[in-house]
Each structure stands twice: as C-alpha cells, then as structure tokens.
Design a protein around this nucleic acid. Structure first.
Lengths: 227, 227
DNA sequence: CCAAAAGTGTTGGCTCTACACCCATGA
DNA sequence: TCATGGGTGTAGAGCCAACACTTTTGG
C-alpha cells in the first residue's frame, strides 16, 4: 500500500530541509556543471543538481558531502553555501526548503557515474543546460553569479585549477567564466604583483614555446581586490 | 502533561526550519539592533534575535515578516537573506536549521514592545550586546559584515534613513557603520557625482546654518561601486 | 623556416587622496 | 559677536587601460 504523492506530502507536519549542490569544473576551456537526471517523482526525466534531504543530527555541509559522494564519487570539493530557497511551491509534491551550495573541483575526469538513484548524470556547458527540475534554473544563475563575483575579489580560482598550471590556463579560466576578453599584459602584471601565484622552476613543454608553470601561493580562500 | 525538552525533540523525525532576523536601525548616531529576551527553553533569560519556526506552506520571507510583526509590530522592512545555520547542536534542544535574515528600518521609534512570548525586548548598540542565545553572536557578526560590505557597493543606506535627510546624517551613517572616518569633501563629491541622492529645494533650519535636504534618487536596491 | 603560443613596457588620462578655510544662522 | 555645524576647491601621486611586437619551440 504505497503512499501516493499527495498523501506522502501530508505525512510531514513541517517543511523538510534539503541541500542541492551546483558543482562546477573547468574542462576543455569551458565552465561546466554536473547534473543528474531524475528517475522518479513529479519531475521525472528532468535534470537537476544533485541533492537530497538533510538527516536528523546532520550538519548541512555533511549532507552536501554525502550527496556529492553518492552522485559523483567525489570526497573532496571546495564548498560554499549560496542561498536558501524556501518557496513552498518550488516542489509541487511537498514543502521542501533547500539550502543551495556551490562546489568547485579541479578535475571533472575523476567523477564516476551517478548512483542508481538517478537515471543518468553528466557535465553540461552552462550555455546549453537541459530542462531543469524545480527552481534549479534559478540556482544555476545564482551560482554562476556568485562564482563570477568571487573570481573578482578572491583567489577562489585555486579550487578550479589543478595544483600546477600555466599562466595561459589561469587567464583562460578568468576570461571564460567572466565572459569577457582580458588584457594579457595588464592581467599578468596585476596578478603577479599581488603575489597570488607562486612561480615554479619547471616549464611545460608542448608543441610550441614552453610555458612557465605556477601554483597558488595559498590553497585557502583569500579575499583580495583582483580586477 | 506537557512534554519536556528531550521528549519534545524526539517527536520530530527531521530537522525543523526556523528564521531569525537581525534587525538594524540607525538611531542617535549609532547603529543598533533589536533583541528579545527569551522566557522559556534552555536559553531562558538570554537574549536573541526575534525568530521562530517556519510553518507548513509558508514562504521564508513571510515567516520573517510574521515574526517581525509579533516581536516589534513592524509591518514593513527591507529584508535580505543572510545565511543558513544548520549545526545540529546549535540548539541543544532540537535540530533546528535557521535561515538568518537581515532587516533594516529607518525609524526605530515605531517599534512597539515585544509580544508576551518574550520577557523583554529592546535596542542595543552593537558594541554592547548582552549574552546571546544559541549561535546568535555569529549571526550578529555575519549581519554586520554584510551590512558594511553592502554600504560600499550599493545604495542600501536608503533602508536605514528617513525619506528626507541632510548630507551630514548620510555621512554619519557611513562613518559610524564602517567604523572609520570619512573625508567630507571627497565623499560628498563622489556621492553627488554618481547621482545617488536627489537634492531637494528645502533646507532644515536648526540652531546653526541651515542644512540642504536630500532624498534617495531610488528607493530600491541598486548595485554601485561606492567607496 | 614557418606556425603557434608565450612573453614582455610604456604612456596618457583619469581617479583618488590629502588637506583648511569661509559661511549662515540662532542665541 | 560668537559658537556651531554646513559647505566648498586644488594639486600631486598613483593607478589603470590601451596598445604590438619579439621569443621560443616543434614540426
């Protein structure tokens, strides 16, 4: 005697608490985000950011990490709380208050397929998202806005880049995510002057002139006026 | 046969959702915040920001407005969501996830006493807060930080000032909240150049030279580089 | 030797900061 | 006329944006 959606909703006296995670990675010179395809519920077939209900006694961050592990296999990511969405009609099935997080990782290749809980999972360019469930399109906009603004006044890029990278990769990340061209000379001068990056002695050899390698001076979030 | 705190906590399968509101007003040349004194629960006697549980089917903003009305009689305020606090041990009595809001009003004199739900209520200077319940001291810091930074890149001051004011009052608000001296000439030049304020034709007569009056050009939040 | 990406300086304009005196009024 | 808060201008320094060619390598 399974409960239908409506009856199910009535079983809860209070709003439920969930977390949803907008996971970003920079891959093939593009910012991408990870989505899962729902296989049940009123939004069946639509895509969504991975998320789920918070358990009793669980920290919000722990709930995010748990869901991230289930959906992607990831055990480490930079996490930042974004906003809490509480419109009772955002999920037609029940009153779910969702705390949205942004997660950043340097290497999207490490992500394993989603759990059987979902029909599918994959990376999407932000300009070509499939139809999103609930209010997740709003979350996507909100997350991108936050990421853009943090790029301009913090060293948050460290969470999207591998430990060692070229200056061109660093600059490409900025110009792609901010969606505007960046003056190479001015940008390099400013970044190096503020000591954000640590120049390494090695270079990366490729098809052309070798590129000097850098790593971040600090791997923790620092607020700095950048642009 | 009232339930004790422990038994009460066990009745809920899931975390509960609450809102708490850090209400700011600028009065007597000082930034003040409104606190209520708890008259029951494990934090009995301590002070806290007004708040309460979100009801089923209720928007978060509506819950904030409802609690604000109960605690202060206010029906209008600028509201902004700050952060969601979800540590399960933040309330020793139950797992309560609290969505913190900042509220701004121009006239603290309008606030009426708190509901019988609370032992007392009143305005406090931020430098002299009484012992706060739960994690409300963290909320206070968070709210102040947000207010400071928004003063620097938006016209949010409109929500803390009456419809008509002198430039000296406007400047005093900035220098007090940012806790640093402001160069009167440079500040005035910049603010007027960016068209943030609308000069009125009247002046305010007092004990000394009359002061020109201003109002905000826009009464809605505008993001602008200010300082 | 050619293609492709890496790397490098200067200048003019603009913005920001520092700073001190006169003005208008009521008492 | 005096006390008090209101109101005003300039100059030097520092910062920012615009801008194009040379270098290094692999193929």
């Amino acid at each position: 005697m399974p409960a239908g959606p409506t009856e199910s909703a009535d079983r809860f006296e209070r709003p439920r608490v969930a977390v949803d995670t907008v996971l970003f990675a920079f891959q093939e010179r593009r910012l991408k985000t990870y989505l899962v395809q729902l296989s049940r519920g009123p939004a069946n077939g639509k895509w969504a950011f991975p998320g789920g209900l918070v358990r009793r006694g669980e920290m919000l961050d722990d709930a995010v990490r748990r869901e991230l592990k289930i959906s992607t296999g990831l055990t480490d990511a930079y996490l930042e709380q974004l906003f809490t969405f509480g419109d009772p009609s955002r999920d037609p099935d029940a009153h779910v208050v969702s705390v949205a997080y942004m997660a950043l990782i340097p290497d999207p290749g490490r992500v394993s397929g989603p759990s059987p809980k979902y029909a599918a999972g994959g990376w999407f360019e932000l300009s070509a998202l499939p139809p999103l469930a609930y209010d997740h399109a709003v979350m996507a906009k909100y997350a991108l806005k936050r990421l853009k603004s943090k790029l301009e006044y913090s060293n948050i890029a460290f969470a999207l880049l591998p430990p060692i990278f070229t200056f061109a990769e660093f600059e490409e990340l900025y110009s792609q995510i901010l969606a505007r061209p960046i003056d190479r000379r001015n940008f390099r001068r400013r970044i190096l002057a503020m000591g954000l990056l640590r120049p390494l002695k090695e270079t990366r050899r490729g098809a052309h002139r070798p590129a000097a390698l850098y790593s971040f001076a600090r791997q923790t979030l620092q607020m700095i006026e950048m642009l």
